[in-house]
């Protein structure tokens, strides 16, 4: 998928994550998390997994994590990507997500 604009998803509420994505060269992930020491690596792995599944190779992702579950984190990153690609009406349920 190719991003055509910047987009956001999520909130700064507890148990959520706020995600901003924008088109870029390569993949850049900037993570700020309230549970960075314990879960930073697994959060980054999930984000990379989502980007790989969606075939996104040009993106800058900024995440402020407030203790989101893995399912919430994935949902927020996916939503931001789909919004940035104008693809919310054509989501690949059961395949790439």
């Amino acid at each position: 998928m190719k991003l055509i604009k910047s987009a956001i998803a999520g909130t700064y509420e507890s148990s959520d994550a706020f995600v901003r994505v924008e088109p870029a060269e390569g993949v850049k992930i900037d993570l700020e998390s309230s549970v960075m020491d314990q879960y930073g690596d697994s959060i980054l792995a999930s984000v990379r997994d989502v980007l790989k599944n969606l075939d996104v190779s040009g993106v800058s992702v900024a995440i402020t994590d407030k203790g989101a579950l893995d399912c919430t984190l994935r949902a927020r990153v996916e939503t931001a990507i789909f919004r940035a690609c104008d693809a919310m009406d054509n989501i690949p349920w059961g395949t790439k997500i």
């Binding site: 399912c71 994935r74 949902a75």
Partner: peptide, 15 residues
């Protein structure tokens, strides 16, 4: 609405 639907899917699948 769009975001909630993606959240729903991931919640059902992973939680």
């Amino acid at each position: 609405k769009d975001s909630a639907r993606v959240s729903l899917y991931n919640t059902l699948k992973y939680h």
